[in-house]
Every structure is written in structure tokens, then in C-alpha cells.
Design a protein around this nucleic acid. Sequence first.
DNA 1: CTTAGGG
DNA 2: CCCTAAG
Length: 681
Amino acid sequence: MVMKKRLDNGFNGFLDWTVPRGPRSFRRVHSKKDFEDGQICAIELLASLAGKLLQDGESTACSNTSDGDHSVIGTNVVKEDKSNPEKGFKMKCCDGGSSQSCDLAIETTDQKQNLKKLQYVDNITVFDCTSVVINSNSSDEACGDVKPVVCKTEFGDYCTKPEEGSPDSLESTDTGVKIINEEQHETKGFGIGFPNMADSHGSKDLKKSPTMANSSFKTGFRSSFSRYRNYFKLASRDEDEKFRSNKSSFHPNSFRPPSRIAGRRIRKLLNSKHWKAAPKLKDCEVPRSGSIDNETRNPFRKRKLYFNSERRFQGDGLYKRRRLFDRSSVVNSDEGMSSESVSNSPEKSIHIDKSGLAAVLHGASVTTSSAQQASFHSKDSHVKFSIRSFKVPELFIDVPENATVGLLKKIVLEAVTAILKGGLHVGVLVHGKKVRDDNRTLLQTGLSCKDNLDTVGFTLEPNLVHNSTSPLCSEDHPQMLACDITELVPSSPVNPVSSSGILDVVALPNTTLTNSKIQDENKHELITTSIDNLPDNSLQDCKALVPVPEMTMEALAVVPLNPKSKRSEVVQRRTRRPFSVSEVEALVQAVEELGTGRWRDVKFRAFENADHRTYVDLKDKWKTLVHTARISPQQRRGEPVPQELLDRVLAAHAYWSQHQAKQHSKHHQAGVVKAIEGSSC
DNA sequence: CTTAGGG
DNA sequence: CCCTAAG
């Protein structure tokens, strides 16, 4: 996760921030509402199915084993039975043999907005051995007919809806979830699938979902979109130089008139939550008053150039220092812990998905439907995603050797159910990096060009921030609400509690997973949960089942366990936003006029509406610009800055450095003079 | 809050 | 880009 330092530039790598580092602290942004608003409808469906399975477990799951159906390991497949539309989501167990496949197809077919819907064929029921993969590569005709729709907008709406239409509505035919047996992994693989559940309870749950699905989604999107529009009404300076001028005039100029503080306040309001009031203020703006003193002393003063930060109409302003992210969305999938760090008894532990907890989409194939994706107003452009496979979050399972396969299945199912019930987040990866700014458009993110679409990835992430009012907590483990668990392992195994919902650990009361390593690494979510309600007493033999969330050591170390402190808010490093040439030009222009010591003024002069550029950013950029200008062109990286600009940078830098020195000496002299005068008097 | 500078 | 001392 740490980027290579660029020492060759002589800067001792201080430029390293060009690549995001891990978060330093955490915050929580997703509201409780997020969680409750059906964000996990699809998941709940699965969970309900899983619950059903649990109930019927002994007769179904175990029967498989007794039947000698060993193929279930890594091959069992769950699929819907489309032949029975009324039953909706009848689950069927099929022995996929080598053609194991499950369904998970996510597709965005954008009609009028960027992202209209995600189709989610939720046969996410198969887990493979080393890596649980929901693979859709196989065009298994038997699968892929059921299409509950999961709408996950970038604004958080998340809903499901069964697709009443024909299977054709699915973009891709390959909607099977594939169980992959990755032999290269030393751990033994296995898979589970929902057994025959012709009368699955799930169908009922499913029938509910459609309603809220669409409505929730649409409203969510609309409101979000309207916010954008409001913003742009206010702040977009796109093709409006005048606007910019007016705007700047509204704010205190660089010489900070008396009203400066008030001006700042107003500005702050404008930039924050009072967008709608802004347009009116604009009308009241007064033309910018001329400079008082700069004119005479600043040789660069004449030039006028303003950077139109919103030129591209991309809603950058919405960024608004949005630094709070759900914890689970912050963790990088590739930072997942190794299995070794968790298994307290390697011989017996079964490690699922060694590659980490993040559910990683494999081979996302994406296509664009519009040729002018990259064009400016591509509102009508669609970006279609065809997700071939997901990895399911990593599970760590520890069972005794003499446990039955049926038990194992049950345990795994428990783990999966726990995760699913906890809800999932979808992460988006571009070039392997997580896109954490949910407000960015696909266009901004670079997902609009066909060329870039193959770099997209999706992840399924356990919803670690489990709301206290969520069913799992309130119903199943109410006691956790009152527990302030700050230790890694519960001191009293007799008092089982649930952790963050997805982290439930099924363990014997006296065999709490107390692996020292785990403790050492702050796996404080390893809380035991009661297994009393489990039907199978044989479960008593199992040592522990530990679904471990995607989580880095860092995250583990920081995230508190207390459900309340689970609001563990994350301060996410801002997304990197390289300065464009036009921005650089604006910066140079402003610095030429104002000097290098007045970044606040520079900010207001040239980047006032670029909320994502703070004066510190500008100062830093200037710093790097000066550096860039001094090094040889070959050593420069990133978007090349015109030499002309760099020359100006150096000139301005030299000038202001000298000027500063002058001022300094001037003041010094003045002080001396004054002192002399004072003494003479 | 700003500035300046290190990381 | 982050952090923070200092003003």
C-alpha cells in the first residue's frame, strides 16, 4: 500500500502523497438510515434463505452428505428455477460438477441518468474453497434466469427488485456463479449451496422488494441529482467569466477589507449547506474593487486569468471536503490479513479465500454504449457493466476433524449468513484502487471511456458498521447494545455477544477464539455468540467459526468494537486531484499577482469555487511547481506543464522571494528607523 | 484561521 | 496531500 518513494527527485519523497495512503482514523458516514433503508434487501433474501436452510439444515444439508454427495464440495450450485415464476425465487440445488455456476450479474443500463440500475442475480450462494467466487463466466443455461435487481446508486440507495421481464433483459448470458476450486491453495476447498427449497421462504421476501426497489432508488437519485443542479446553479462558473468576477468581488479581495470576516462567513455558507440561497447573494455582489497597493509594486499585476474550476461541469464542488466514509469502504482489499494471522490451529482451520476479505470482482467486462462517453455533456451516455464474478468476503473457519461435512456446511452457512445479514457494501475499484468518493461521476472516475472500463472492479464488503437497531443486533443479540467491548476477546465467554453483526463468531463457550495472534493484531471483533439456539448439538464440537471481514491491520487496530463507537468515523484521505494545466496557469497567475505568502488570497482569487483546492493545496502545488521547474524535463511526471508556465513560476518565485526579502529588510529598516526616531525623541 | 514547512 | 507549530 505504500508507494515507492521517488527519491530521484531529490525531494526525499515528500511527493509521495501522490498516492493515497491508508486512512489514519475512521469516521462513519453512512447513516443508520442507510442500513435500514433496505440497503440489504437482497442480502436479507439470502439471509432468510439461509435461515431456512438452517432450520431445515439437518434434513437437507446433511442429507447431501449422507448421500455421499461429495461433489458439493466446490461444486454445489444454487440456481433459481425459472420454470416456476410464481414461486419467484425458488432455489434449486444442482450438482454443477465442473460447470458449477451461480448467478450474479450486475449491469447498469442507464437510461436517463448515469447509473440507473444494477441487476443483481442473487444466487450468491456458492462458495468455493480457497476463494469464494461468484463467477458468471459460464453461460450455464440452467442458471441465470432470476433477476432480482439491486440498485445501488452512488448515493447509497440500495434496493432489490425481481425482474419480471425475461432473462433477455440481462445483458450477459453468463450469469452463473461459479465455484472455483483453486487447487493451488493449500487449503481445502468446499462449497455450499442452498439445497432444494422449492417453497423457500425467500420468495415471500422477494416479493416485497420490488416496490421499494424502484421507488427508493428513484427518489434517492432524484434528490441527489437535484442537489447537483442546485450546486451548479450556484457555483458553476463554466462558461461564465463574468460570474467569476462577480463572485470574487463578493468576497473580500486580497487586501482584506474590514468586512473580511463576514465575507468569509458568507462564503462558507455559500459553500456549504446553503447553496440555494447563493444565487441571490450573487445578485447583490459588488464589482470587485481595485487593488489598493498591488498595482504599483507587482509587475505581474496586469494579467488577468481566472481558472474556471467547474469548467467541466463535473460537480467537483460537491466534493466539499467529504472525508467521511464508512469504514468498510475504506479498507483496501489488498490489505487483507493473511490467513496465518488468524488461524489458531492451522491444521484444522479451513481458510476460505486467502486473497483477502474483499469480494473482488473478477474480470469485469465493461462496455460503453455511447461513443461520446468522454464528451462533456454525456448525460445520455450509458456505461454498462457486466460483472463476471465476485469474491465473497473471506471466511475463517475452524472445525474439528471429526466434524461432519454437514456440520461444516452449516458452519459455513452460518458465517455467510452472518455476513449477509450484516449487509454488504459495494466497492468500486479503478486500476486496483478504490474509488472512495461516491460523489464522483463515472465520467470523472474514468469509467466512461471504453478504454478504461476494463480497469474497473467491484468488491463486496461486509458492512462492518452495524447499526444498533439492525435486526441482528436488536433481536438476536440485544445485549451487544449495552456492551462496551473494547477488548479483543471477551473476558467472559459465558456472556456471548455479537460484534458488528457480520462478525459473529460461533464458538463454544469455553473455546472462544483466543488466538494470541488474533489478540495481538487487535481482532477485537472476535466475539463469541451464543450457539444455544443452534439445532445441532454437534456444533458444540466445532471450535470456532470466524468470518473475518475485509479489514487491514490498520483498520483493525483503529476500529473500536463498541457498537456505539462503531460510529467509528473515518477520515479518508482526500482523493488525489492532480492540477490541470489550466489550474496551474490560474495558480501561477494568482501568485504572480499576489505573491507567495498569501495563499488564502490566491485561493479566493483563482480557486474560489474550487472547493477541493484549499489554500494549503495551492501552496503545496506551488511548492511542487517550483520544484518541477527546477528539475529537468525528463524528471518531471504527470501531466506536463508547459515550459512557459514553469518559467513564470520561477520568475514569480524569484521575484517574490526577493520581494519578501525586501519587505523584510524594509520592515527591519523601518523598525530601525523607528527605533532611532524613538530614541531621538 | 493562516502561514510555513516538514513529511 | 497530510500534519502541525506558530502567529
